[in-house]
Design a protein around this nucleic acid. Structure first.
Lengths: 205, 205, 205, 205
DNA sequence: CATGAATGAGTATTCATTCAT
DNA sequence: CATGAATGAATACTCATTCAT
């Protein structure tokens, strides 16, 4: 992973429609083939320009990746914060977080898929420290709801909330790999089936 | 270092200890950085030889990847087949499949991690058709157990077994990203906590 | 430096001056050392750029070779067709074909030399089928003249025209190995001496 | 072209059946694909051994090439010397040289083909000075016969014998590319047709 | 804003050769 | 004599990036 040149860093801020279009293309391609396997030429081609012209919009390939991920996590955290602030009880809170995740998968599958494939490695790389910071904040929001539910007696007391959180998180986010908007499943049906399984369990009593 | 099971030892490429060592190194590196981002030089260096010398053992970088994945899936399918054949009832069957998955994560985390990151894209690539074929066979084994449980009345009837399978599969396999053998959690504790959550659900009644 | 005839300028790859320059350099080097022994670095160095920069102009080393050979054969066939169409009698036709060959050797010795050394093997390789196709068309043009001459009684009837053609062809083209423009011999003197030997024979009567 | 190691040069002399077999294989492959394009592994494979084992017989790939070419030219020169010594008159001398060439093509087509493709470039390379030396001796033998024929009045006086020699030489040797022993043509028929064309010419009078 | 030519560092792969066994 | 593992230098090719136009 190459280091960013500081000289061109001021570009990052000037948002425009063209930039967003290109970022969406980049996210889509990277989510499919992976960051290393996606070339700057692939992205440019899809955008209908030459690869060199991309550098008029972005300082580097890595800068595009950062912008995609930062935007994605910021939006997600904003929604999660809102949910946590408005949650009337832990059960409703958890359900809302889960529904929000499914909605996010539906709304921006490319960013979700990209995050899933690349985040683990990237969070150890310079320039991507924000990934760890923001995912830790997210984890705290979830665990707070889980712990509150345990204390309120609505969630079982036995499980380690951190582990429970990860089971939930991974089961939900991973659906981006097979859930296709407009297909057999909808956000509502996915959410419903997941919540039923999560809360009531697989087994009858 | 993983050794190949005798079941798959009949491959065209006769396995030697050196080959297995190199494959284990390759699997470890690729599972961390991704296939494209892992260079044959990285692998060779870790094996203590020059990159060109790898080609004495393997035809190509891609051939290494195929061998790792094929070996992994073959071993897994063998175990799953055995479990399905010996399962006394659906509940025991599902539990054994889950335990087997956690054991596999414990035994060969590199192959599991690699599979998770790369399989989705690779299965569309020529030379990796076996990925789809074998994962379909695996899916069938799981769904058969789930459906049998529904019919026997021990599993809730509402959920689509295919969807339930995917929730379970992703939650379990994804633990390879954070489960560390020798750490706080063990195969037994992970299995136990997951089974409890899965069967009884998160909520109290 | 050879320039492409307008007849072949309608290729997919739009020719630019830079491309033509590089192709001429490549043809020269390959004609001397052979295709395998000529590296893309050799070609790039001679062109004053780095080897990687060649790929801005050409898809591969092989693509350069194809373009050189295709261009050469197209130009040659065009001239031969014209000669055959305008030939007043077989003797004049054969003489014009021979003169044309010597002129071609004089005008583009690199392409001729390259063709001579590589065509035999290349014509069996995928992507070079046009070599066989075009050389067959050329052979037909020559043999038609030879046969017409035999029938008209101006050429001896004994010889197999196909064999005679090959004797002529090889004697003429091979001169590219030792004929040097600007040296002792000229196109005119070479043509003259060859025609005399061919038509009247070596022996006095 | 790498330089030969003097340390292993003593090997060159110990001839054996196995060596000759391998040299024949090498000559065949190199005559088809060219020296650079023929790998030492290709040769070894065809000989049924591993590439490293070749170095038990030969000091290097280049040493094999030298031995093939040296042997070929030595044999040819020996025959030519004999012919020149026994020639009763120039016409018989030239005819015998030509017949000898066709016989050589028939007997060792691989060496002839190899020589034709590689000699021009190789003769400028260190270690292959003998090519120029021997081919010059050969040229002298031919030219002597041609000049003697001119002086005796049996060959036309107009042509430059050096040029005539080259026309003959190239037409004859090049037949190795298309003459197939056991096919339509024989050494005798090729010789006959060539001699008729050469001496009497193509045109009737 | 975009092009097109170029860079320079890197990538996978090849190959002649060596050498301990 | 032959193997098999390794070397080291070279090979074709890729790719993020730069920059004059």
């Amino acid at each position: 992973m190459t280091r960013m040149s500081t000289a061109t860093k001021t570009k990052v801020e000037q948002s425009s429609e063209r930039r967003d279009e290109i970022l969406a293309i980049a996210a889509r391609l990277i989510s499919r083939r992976g960051y290393s396997a996606t070339t700057v030429r692939d992205i440019a081609e899809e955008a209908g320009i030459l690869s060199g012209s991309l550098y008029h919009h972005f300082a580097s390939k890595e800068a595009m990746l950062q912008e995609i991920l930062h935007g994605f996590m910021d939006r997600l955290l904003t929604r999660y914060d809102e949910i946590a602030a408005n949650a009337t009880d832990p059960r409703a809170g958890i359900d809302a977080l889960i529904e929000c995740a499914f909605e996010t998968i539906d709304r921006e599958p490319a960013a979700v898929g990209l995050y899933q494939n690349e985040a683990a490695f990237l969070s150890t790389q310079p320039g991507f420290e924000f990934l760890l910071a923001e995912s830790t904040r997210i984890e705290k929001i979830w665990i707070a709801q889980l712990r509150a539910g345990q204390e309120a007696g609505v969630f079982r007391a036995e499980g380690d909330p951190a582990v429970t959180y990860r089971f939930i998180r991974d089961a939900v986010w991973a659906t981006v790999q097979w859930y296709r908007p407009g297909g057999r499943h909808t956000v509502a049906s996915m959410t419903e089936q997941f919540l039923k399984l999560l809360h009531d369990g697989l087994s009858t009593r």
